[in-house]
Amino acid sequence: MKHKRINRLLALAALLAAWHILSVIWRTPIIPSPWAVFNVFFEIFFSKLAVHALYSMWRIAAGITLSLIIGIPFGLCMGYFEGFDRLFSPVVYFLYPIPKIALLPVVMLLMGLGEASKITMIVIIIVFQIIVTVRDAVKSIPKEMYYSLISLGARRSDIFKNIIIPASLPEVVTSTRVGLGTAISVLFFTETFGTEYGIGYFIMDAWMRVNYLEMYSGIVMLSAIGFVVFSAIDAAEYRLCRWK
């Protein structure tokens, strides 16, 4: 644990050093020095940043939770029931490659400009990768694993509880992690429309006002959010997949 903390501090120091060097080389207000940015960051943290960050985090959390609630049962059933897979795989394959961001205007028209459309965008983008990873995780369970349970007289519910769900859990965590990166970038995009809250809005607004220091503070906040959420997933993985 201590080791991990030192690694994280080193990574942070290296990033800041690189940033500092870039700002010294270019000497332009578009790349301010990290120290100036951090000054502003702490200055406006409670007055402005915190509320925007909370809005964004709530949208990410809601989007991911909904995607998991929809994606996991679908993936599990597609992995386990042959017929279910034959029926839904083509549907998933048709929908998965559509650039969902192009659907933003449609979603906004249908769901309004508020929270619903932002969360929907996150869900329709990451739910497919969760479905596909979970399905493949279930399909790759060796059949010998089922044999010993069947010979013990297991019912289908026992098989789901004891094999299918725990076997696919690590893949669920991985796909959540991959989905999260996507979710944050989608979120940024959707927050530039129809809202006055959210870190995406804050960054764009600062940019419009040519306030680069505030804009960078927003970017720092965004990466801090990413760091917090990724760490939360790591912690969840450690708890859930202790056997690995």
Binding site: P142, E144, M145, Y147, S148, N162, I163, P166, A167, L169, C241, W243
Partner: peptide, 8 residues
């Protein structure tokens, strides 16, 4: 092989 459940 595979008779045991790795998560138990």
């Amino acid at each position: 092989d595979y008779g045991l459940l790795p998560w138990k």
